[in-house]
Simulated scan of single mutants.
Amino acid sequence: MPLASEEVYEKKLLDKITDKIVDMIAKIMDKIRPGWIAKNRSRINEWKLMFYAFNRSPPGVIGAALILGFILIGIFGPYFAPYSYRDFLYIKYRETYLVPPGTTVVSKGKTFYFLLGTDKYGRDLVSLILYGARVSLVISMIVIALGVPLGIILGLVAGYFGGKIDEIIMRITDTFLAFPALILAIAFAAVLPERLRPMIIYNEQLKTILSVFFAADPKDAANFAPILSVILAIIIVWWPGYTRIIRGSVLSVRENLYVEAARALGVSTWKILTRHILPNVISPVLVLITLDVGAVILVEAGLSFLGLGAQDPMVDWGKIVYDGAQFFPDRWWLVIFPGLATFLAVLGWNLVGDTLRDVLDPRTRRSIEFKIKKKKPVPSSEEGGSSQ
């Protein structure tokens, strides 16, 4: 008698890895909130299915690999850099001036090898790119960590309460959206440094924290002000988009029956917003966040290219390109390599964002899930009875 069959997911190596990650997160949540796994079993399975769909997307996997590389280089790169960003070798070794990639320099009894060449100060370009990755990573993470929650909170409040509160918040949002974001960011980035510099210089704790964040020497504390100005400038122009998206989604969700039932049961407004409304409007925000990290990296690099970001001797990718532009195309490596690093980092976030858009859409995700199901033969009940 032919065997019956059931459909199961054919797991690959990435699926097993993501399963372990999800299970680890679930165990952590269960320790924080005992019984969490039992109550959220379906949610855990849904997370695993989303990862299965994500793992079947080559662009998404490539993007995740690029993001992982960017994060690792941003965190650990400065500690493995061959030289410090403050090593101005040209002062003592004149032969290190604008050395092309792959060159070995012997000067005054010392030997130097520069894989990607040097800049006009004789600084190793590999080291500058590694230090620049830290600055780009910190800026993008701070902007997203501060700008996104601000936009989400304002959008939830405006959409849920409506009336005058909605009118005030949306008019302020429209005012910010009326200005070109880059122009507004340039204006704030140009004005803020002089106001932030005294606060940084005379606050030892803040100076120490920023030195660790940017992997910089405390001697360069005065140069933290332009970088902080760029962060604040981008945050100021970044939250309105999230407010508009969340507010529009909340307007459609707040009239659903489960929200009305929560109100009737006397559930607090905060719990309604965070437990019933926010989980149902967060999907487009997650996609937008991944796309916006790449956009923040580009805007930050653009502001630095205009001279409003990192100042000598500190570096970021836009500053390296700005310094090398005057020597391009003869000294092409000063523009190509930091530009390539920026391109790969932004490409990674964009690829992941496009893939998440498909994974978080139930219709597209289900179509991907059906493709990865495999029929597995199982003994039928009749066969089991006959064997006995």
Results as ranks from 00 to 15, higher is better:
Trp333Gln: 03
Leu146Pro: 06
Ile235Met: 02
Glu167Lys: 15
Phe370Pro: 07
Lys27Glu: 13
Lys374Tyr: 08
Thr103Ala: 04
Pro379His: 12
Ser381Pro: 07
Tyr258Gln: 08
Ala181Tyr: 08
Phe54Trp: 04
Asn280Ile: 02
Asp15Lys: 03
Thr103Val: 05
Thr243Cys: 14
Phe213His: 06
Thr111Ser: 09
Val106Ile: 14
Trp270Gln: 14
Val296Leu: 06
Gly302Leu: 01
Gly69Met: 15
Ser136His: 06
Tyr258Ala: 07
Leu49Cys: 09
Leu128Glu: 07
Ile272Phe: 05
Gly77Asp: 02
Ala222Leu: 10
Ile152Cys: 05
Glu194Leu: 13
Tyr52Gln: 08
Pro100Trp: 06
Met199Cys: 14
Leu356Trp: 02
Asp220Val: 14
Lys164Ser: 13
Thr274His: 13
Tyr97Phe: 15
Val105Pro: 03
Gly339Cys: 04
Leu298Val: 10
Leu257Phe: 12
Val250Gly: 02
Pro149Asn: 04
Ala221Leu: 11
Ala345Asp: 01
Ile67Met: 13
Ile32His: 07
Ile227Asn: 06
Thr104Lys: 14
Phe76Lys: 08
Leu288Met: 13
Leu182Lys: 04
Tyr9Thr: 06
Val299Thr: 14
Tyr90Val: 15
Phe80Ser: 07
Leu14Phe: 11
Lys27Trp: 10
Gln311Tyr: 07
Phe88Gln: 12
Trp349Asn: 14
Leu344Asp: 02
Phe343Lys: 11
Leu182Val: 12
Val335Arg: 00
Gly117Pro: 02
Ala81Ile: 02
Leu116Ser: 07
Ile227Glu: 03
Asp166Gln: 05
Leu72Trp: 07
Phe179Thr: 07
Ile246Lys: 08
Leu150His: 03
Ala301Tyr: 01
Tyr121Ser: 12
Phe176His: 04
